[in-house]
Design a protein around this nucleic acid. Sequence first.
RNA 1: GCUCCGGUAGUGUAGCUCGGCCAAUCAUGAAGGACUCUCACUCCUUCGACUAGGGUUCAAAUCCCUACCGGAGCACCA
Length: 491
Amino acid sequence: MAPELLEELSQRKEPEKGLSPLEGAELGVVMRFAPNPNGPPTLGSARGIIINSEYVKRYGGRFLIRFDDTDPVKKRPMPEAYGWYLEDCRWLGAHPKEVITASERLPLYYDVAEELIRRGGAYVCMCSQADFKAKKDAGRPCVHRSKGPEENMAHWKAMLDGGLDVGEAVLRVKTDIGHKDPALRDWAAFRIVTASHPLVGDRYRVWPLLDFESAVEDHLQGVTHIIRGKDLMDSERRQKYLYDHMGWNYPRTIHWGRIKIHQFGSFSTSKLRAAIEAGEYAGWDDPRLPTVRALRRRGIEAEALRKFMIELGVGETDISISMDTIYAENRKLVDGIANRRFFVWDPVLLEVVGDVPRRAQAPLHPDRDRGFREIAAGARLYICRSDLDRFGPGDRLRLKDLCNIEITSIDPPRASFIDSSPETAKASKLSIIHWAPLDGIPVEVKGPERDDHGIGEPGIRAELDSVVQFERYGFVRIDSIDPVVAYFAHR
RNA sequence: GCUCCGGUAGUGUAGCUCGGCCAAUCAUGAAGGACUCUCACUCCUUCGACUAGGGUUCAAAUCCCUACCGGAGCACCA
């Protein structure tokens, strides 16, 4: 037997790792991620960006990003957010072949609407919302449903040119008014909105609703596979009526459940936006927020998010995940590259009598050969209050990479020098604590749960924008150096 | 009220399409240990699950029914 065949056989036995295969993707795929740009990408968006783009990488084809920004009022787009999405996509390694902005393509949707009217697949409904709901719930058509195409076209034109006003009419797609699922009966495709849109101003007064816009774009772009939230399952069934009227083929769809994160609870972009505007958070990259930019600022690598999302996979179950899994992924990536530095939180000044070395040489990394950092030492040093509290007079311990000491007094904090040999410490199994020099610099750490203040070794100033490990504390990204502010990633 | 979807260890996930190879995979987590001048990383060991009840079958996590639990839609929001 040919060796390739043997190999293939043994590979097939391997448990399927990563994303499960997509049906009908063998010839390549066209997939899209379609956000509403009313805030920056969150962890949930990251899932959509990563999974969709990952499938495109795997099967070949086109990855698109499409801004579903067709509500200038209730889900008013933020002009900055369009760029934020592109920026975060790039950072996540997803490179859209094309960027589509729905608000700039209304004429295309109008064309489809008119063709649909001609085909008798839609009608202008002038019922009040309440009246229509009553009819719909009863499964009965309203009087407008039986109008002919010419009359509908005239009413449609009136919607467009101002003959009808806000709230007076909508264009509905004909489905099955008696369908057993009330959610599918004659849905609204266009409504009149006169508010100005942040991107296109008041050029249009008739705006499509998501089901219509999304359905038409998916067809125009030749989307082959849609992955979307389970909450949009009915959308698919609604949109299929439109596809039937137009004679189009519906893409394959996959749905995923809601994703909740322990540490952040449930969040919605509009809630976050309100909280930020109320001053509860410093901005969209506040470390307490589950946005992609906040995670990036904290030193979470894109690769960690990618691995995590791929591991999560695509399932219809609603899931509740823990950031710990992302942190574990990131820790592995970052451990090998992060320099080690001393940061003493809640510092107390310790006086050591005796022949304490004037300087310490500490490795930048415990097991990669990256050389040493020099730290000024001396008789007076900072240590963590919590460390001091663990000891009493007579206790011996080691100051990492410096010397061994014996505590002589807690208040005031005093110790005496024993020797410098690491062997002594090893032989008597001394606890090893870290420290900061008298000429240490103030360091502030901003984290998702709390902020810490303390003193760090001056060399931290050389680490701007990189991820370092504060020994016995955790991984942080140095966000600024004058003064030093670090963002906490995880332990 | 009507309709739709889901329910595998603490948390996720594989397996379910085409029942047996599942005394159920992997990751994370927890516990213990090794290594280590960090409570990091790495390595080793251990813990831990098919929601419940019926049915079909020689055989069910896998098929069918019911119950329970969870989520969602029924907007001139996305």
